[in-house]
Design a protein around this nucleic acid. Structure first.
Lengths: 199, 199
DNA sequence: ACTGTGATGTCACTTGATGACATCACAGTG
DNA sequence: CACTGTGATGTCATCAAGTGACATCACAGT
């Protein structure tokens, strides 16, 4: 919503519009250049042409600037469940969600690599990423329960989707060839199935 | 190591010994009474009879005071892999680890409930818990690879163990009857197997 | 008696984060 | 056209989390 095309066209407020986007870009570049801890919020704000106070009006904290698009991803993921027939198994539902997620996230691999490099280099950022995924998992499990999936199965299926996503995404970002995220997701899920079946 | 029996017996330093343990207790009780954010490090230190500076000599940050025993858990978990025959499948290895974890963590359910209540009430603490489990997962995956498990299978199996742990632990803490953690773990793992097989 | 050491205290400082209030270009409205 | 309300921003003050540097002092070993 707040992210899409700019709504006003000319003669906007006293300040340049798109402060949120400028802050996002400034933050990512500074985190890349100096590392997360070495970049102060004041630095980021300055590069974006605003005050530190304004930074905190857009983002709850210094980490969130890298993650605030996760709510959009969550919405898309949940929407992917809507169309499915009620007969779909929990794991197939998960597969459908992963398909959507891959489509959403799998576009710009270079950007993904930059983001991932920054996140992996800092423990606080890894923490934040994990809780975002867990939040997604919780929401997913809720929906699955609404669809009639058993309590525990819903939790397990949802958490499993996160596992597959994490492993597949890591493979995708690391990969040297140009394999597409979707395929890696599918293959990873298959491998998990095989693992559970054989064990 | 630093946690076991006190090594000195009488006439120890200028200050009362066991500052670390006192800080742990003070923190847990204060987090319970006021909530994590409302309890300052100065408060905790005061209750433990030391200075805030000393708190940070024992614990890297305000959250870590609830989690610094996780390294011991990790060691035990990895040790559980040592005895296993090389023919053991990745998932069976995971089962063995979960057995050990359940034994270690499943002792005092009242304490577990208190800890869990504090952690669940605060997002920062949930983050920290997640990264501790992920760290355990990473270490586990490494060991599995050393045992000859394939790269991806190792990651999947290790992450799966975390999933089972989380779901099972939550059930155990919530449960009204006195089911033992081990049994819940086993059952949860079985359900995950079934889920993957059927899907 | 002398000295080194480890655990702690004290102090100063940076940074993240938040509340309260001021400012001012712009949009409407009469 | 003047008047007013509003939203986004700036300014200022303040608190709490961490961290580095240095001081202190009971104890252990020599």
């Amino acid at each position: 919503m707040s992210r899409g095309a700019i709504t006003y066209t000319l003669g906007m407020g006293r300040w340049k519009p798109g402060a949120g986007d400028r802050l996002r870009e400034a933050a990512l570049s500074l985190y890349l250049e100096r590392g997360f801890e070495q970049a102060t919020v004041a630095d980021i704000a300055e590069r974006a042409g605003v005050t530190a106070r304004t930074f905190f009006r857009y983002f709850a904290d210094k980490r969130e600037v890298l993650f605030d698009d996760s709510s959009a991803l969550q919405e898309k993921s949940l929407a992917a469940l809507e169309g499915l027939p009620t007969t779909t198994s929990a794991l197939d539902a998960v597969a459908a969600v992963l398909e959507t997620v891959a489509q959403t996230v799998g576009g710009d691999r270079e950007l993904a690599r930059k983001r991932q490099a920054v996140i992996m280099a800092n423990a606080d950022l890894r923490e934040r990423e994990l809780i975002k995924l867990t939040s997604l998992s919780t929401a997913l499990a809720d929906r699955l329960r609404q669809r009639g999936t058993g309590d525990i199965e819903a939790s397990l299926a949802a958490e499993t989707s996160i596992v597959v996503f994490r492993v597949a995404f890591s493979r995708w970002v690391t990969a040297t060839d140009d394999q597409v995220l979707q395929d890696i997701m599918r293959e990873t899920l298959d491998r998990l199935r095989a693992l559970a079946a054989s064990g």
